[in-house]
Nucleic acid binder design. Structure first.
Length: 828
DNA sequence: GATTGGCGGGG
DNA sequence: GTGTACGCCAATC
């Protein structure tokens, strides 16, 4: 018998004969990669009978179900009767254990048809997740494993586990992490993996993540020869050889984690497409299986045995509100989190350089390597946060880094259910989702932004508002309007509704969130006591807080298993009650409340110091009950507020703030993106910058006026009015012919292949009729051949009109200003 | 006014 | 893989 300390990195399963084995890949405390094999876990689900008396009739009927499908024999191994809680009520349920995870969906259908069956539960809990939850095993942390090494096809030794126990909370220290990045041939902005080869691949990694002295591994593989003294550049014979070397490097480096930036939807699928083209198997999985692309709405690239982390996905899912940057491209994110951006190189010139000036390729190799280095850096700087999320939610690094907040909350709740003997509610039926999606309810309290340009703004955040409300008012689907407290319970301050929550028994959700809150309080206590900064505890505290904050949104999320409109309504009702108190106090203190939304308040300091603002927060916090806390987010020397929907109630936030370091934080202006013309993007960026950095509204106005005039005089180059859009499906599948579809049809007529993913470039030209009747391709237009009025009215004006509107210039003013003679009246 | 379709990241 | 992405916005119907 061997006994090892083990850290899990990935988990999967394999069908063996009529049964199933769990395969757990990871590494031992002394750095060896191994695989645990566990054949002692079986798939199961629950059947809820209509009547308790039906149970003994139902059991034999269920036990006799047998299904044969795709060479598999599916059968029921046994049934048991258990007591479980469903929506707060105790019920007798039948636990049905089957032989194969793939048996569950057909079994579910078959058994649901039987008379006496009320419902089937937990038949959609993925097998490996079920394993981790039931065995109380946490990925990445330290397990103790006893067993014997066996022969089993795998790149690493396989230990047949006789006993696995959770030993401690300590995360693996010595991870081998390898970041990768591709550069590909692309003469246009279009990305076409079937047409264009990979030109380079870079690697940046370490043999031990926590050891700063550990050797750094750097490599760029490419296949066009040029003179260089960079020893990390390796030349191969062509693309096929590049892919073969890619596989070898992975095999030799033996990474525990592979990192990329947007690698789920770019690098990995690109590699796979190119490998297919060369008939190369991308069998880098530790069980010798291939890179697997799973396709839902979002693609995931899964490598059995290795934790592939797409760091962009993690950031996008869990961090955008915490970041100052509004765009999540690698350069912006790395600048903010690592303090350095991408290397200098014009990637749109790579294809030309490759074809005509290979001697200049070295800078592209440096650029390529830098991208890997940044992805690696982001992984290193966020690993604590990811690991904490893994520890709380209890699923693999791969899963956790790809989940949205609603999914994280849901799986966190699912993990708690065995402790409370709760049954996991089913996902809503399609019809329920459709109905729920239409339901709206009153949200947070909003003080309409007072549009304008302001100096010295202090922003306060009420971050723990909703979690503390859920805990202290016992808000849960199961405690809503209980029969035991109807007369005595405190009523939710919500006009027209008579809601209350049980004051005798804790609800599942409120109890779970209360434990999260107290856990965070304990962590905060320790942090306060310790003199030195404890990064681990800070990450833990932050992660708990983020998760707790997501509970409210989850309760009102249409696809949630524990959806409860009434609960969500009650949370916001109590929230409005509390924020109103803060606003009243701020006004009493003499601050100018510029804007408030749900859990945040923007105060203008004019005439008062930052110290006064800090004192104000302190005073508020003294009076707040329990865990509730108001925090200072940041001071901003300058900011502009725009109401997105002028005159309407519930205006959405739209503002740009300049912080003390000169960085601009923009919220709500993100509409000007790819499918807008470059000229519109450029104008919006420059206008915001001139107004905030130079404080010169007139200059910004003149700049826009000048640009519109240039448009009218046809001086703007065609590429700046060319709109890029991607075709998402076959042209015949479009019901509506939008401008991009019209352009695509023109391209098709000219013999360009137009499939899902094809990029369309078009220019709107003058003429009559719908916009889609007036699109032309870049090759069809002369310089200056564009509809200046379209670009002025549909591109330039919408990108800046709100900004000018709040500064006293109406849309009409912008338009009229084209007439020189009237200009004088706008500047007094 | 309601519905449809594209966007993000990546070269 | 016992599978669930999301929220915003313009153009068209």
């Amino acid at each position: 018998m061997a006994a090892v300390k083990f850290h899990m990195l990935d988990i999967t399963y394999k069908i063996v004969g009529d049964g199933v084995v769990i395969l757990i890949f990871g590494k031992t405390d002394d750095g060896k990669r191994i695989c645990l094999m566990d054949d002692s876990f079986e798939p199961y689900f629950y059947v809820l009978p209509k009547k308790k008396e039906d149970i003994e009739k139902l059991r034999p009927a269920i036990e006799s179900v047998k299904i044969s499908r795709d060479d598999y024999n599916f059968f029921v191994k046994r049934t048991e009767v258990l007591k479980r809680k469903l929506n707060g009520r105790l019920a007798d349920v039948i636990k049905v254990t089957v032989n194969n995870p793939k048996a569950v969906p057909p079994m579910r259908e078959e058994i649901a048809k039987k008379p006496g069956v009320q419902g089937i539960y937990e038949a959609d809990i993925l097998f490996v997740r079920r394993y981790l939850i039931d065995r109380k095993l946490t990925p990445l942390t330290t397990w103790e494993v006893e067993g014997e090494f066996i022969n089993f096809r795998s790149r690493v030794s396989v230990l047949k586990a006789a006993k696995i126990t959770q030993l401690s909370d300590d995360v693996a220290e010595n991870l081998r992490v390898l970041a990768i990045d591709l550069e590909t041939y692309s003469a246009t902005r279009e990305i076409m993996p079937t047409e264009n080869p990979i030109l380079m691949v870079s690697f940046y990694g370490t043999e031990s993540l926590n050891n700063s002295k550990s050797r750094i591994f750097r490599k760029v593989i490419t296949y066009k020869k040029f003179n260089t003294d960079k020893d990390y550049i390796e030349f191969v014979g062509g693309e096929a050889e590049l892919i073969m070397r890619f596989k070898e490097v992975i095999d030799e480096f033996k990474p525990d984690v592979i990192v990329g930036y947007n690698s789920d939807s770019f690098d990995m699928p690109y590699l796979r497409t190119r490998a297919n083209k060369h008939r190369i198997e991308l069998d880098i999985g530790l069980d010798f299986s291939s890179l697997r692309m799973s396709k839902g709405q979002a693609e995931h690239a899964y490598i059995p045995g290795i934790a592939h982390v797409d760091i962009y996905r993690f950031i996008r899912n869990t961090m955008p509100t915490m970041l100052k940057t509004d765009t999540l491209d690698l350069d912006s994110v790395a600048r903010e989190l690592l303090g350095e951006g991408k290397a200098e190189a014009d990637v749109s010139e790579l294809a030309t350089t490759w074809d005509r000036h290979p001697e200049k390729l070295e800078q592209y190799c440096e650029y390529n390597l830098k991208d890997s280095e940044l992805a690696f850096g982001l992984f290193r700087s966020l690993f604590l946060n990811m690991a904490e999320m893994v520890k709380i939610v209890g699923l693999s690094l791969f899963d956790v880094t790809r989940m949205t907040f609603s999914q994280l909350v849901e799986w966190f709740l699912i993990k708690q259910t065995p402790l409370y003997e709760e049954i996991v509610p089913n996902k809503p039926e399609h019809a329920d989702v459709k109905e729920r999606i239409t339901k709206t309810y009153q949200g947070g309290f909003v003080v309409e932004p007072k549009p304008g340009l302001y100096d010295d703004i202090a922003v306060f955040d009420f971050r723990s508002l909703y979690p503390s409300i859920i805990a202290s008012h016992n808000i849960s689907p199961s405690t809503l309007n209980c029969s035991c407290c109807e007369d005595k319970a405190k009523k939710v301050p919500l006009e027209g509704k008579n809601y209350w929550f049980c004051e005798k028994k804790k609800g599942f959700i409120s109890q779970v969130i209360e434990e999260l809150i107290t856990r965070r309080m304990r962590i905060s206590e320790i942090i306060k006591k310790e003199k030195e900064e404890n990064k681990l505890l800070r990450a833990r505290s932050q992660t708990v807080k983020i998760l707790a904050n997501a509970f409210y949104g989850y309760l009102g999320f249409y696809a949630a298993r524990w959806y409860s409109l009434e609960s969500a309504q009650s949370v916001t009702a109590w929230g409005r009650f509390h924020i109103n108190k803060v606003i009243e106090k701020a006004q009493k203190e003499g601050f100018n409340v510029l804007y408030g939304d749900t859990d945040s308040v923007f105060l203008s300091l004019k005439g008062r110091s930052q110290k006064d603002a800090l004192k104000f927060v302190e005073a508020i916090n003294m009076e707040l009950p329990g865990v509730m806390e108001l925090e200072l987010e940041e001071f901003y020397p300058k900011g502009i507020f725009v109401s997105a929907k002028i005159g309407e109630a519930g205006a959405k936030k739209k503002y740009a703030l300049l912080n003390e370091h000169g960085a601009i934080k923009i919220r709500g202006f993100e509409m000007v993106r790819r499918n807008w013309s470059p000229i519109a993007r450029e104008v919006q960026e420059n206008v915001i910058s001139i107004i905030l950095r130079e404080g010169d509204v007139e200059k910004a106005f003149n700049y826009v006026r000048k640009t519109m005039k240039e448009l009218e005089q046809k001086k703007v180059p065609v590429e700046k009015v060319t709109i890029f859009t991607q075709i998402q499906k076959g042209l015949d599948d479009y019901e509506n012919v939008g401008p991009h579809v019209a352009a695509a049809k023109r391209m098709l007529a000219k013999g360009y292949p137009m499939v899902a993913g094809s990029l369309v470039r078009y220019i709107v030209v003058q003429g009559k009729g719908k916009i889609s009747d007036r699109v032309k391709l870049p090759e069809e237009v002369q310089e200056g051949e564009y509809d200046d009025q379209y670009y002025i009215n549909n591109q330039i004006i919408p990108s800046v009109d709100r900004i000018f509107e709040v500064l006293g210039y109406s849309k009409e003013a912008l338009l009229e200003s084209k007439d020189q003679s009237k200009l004088g009246t706008f500047f007094k």
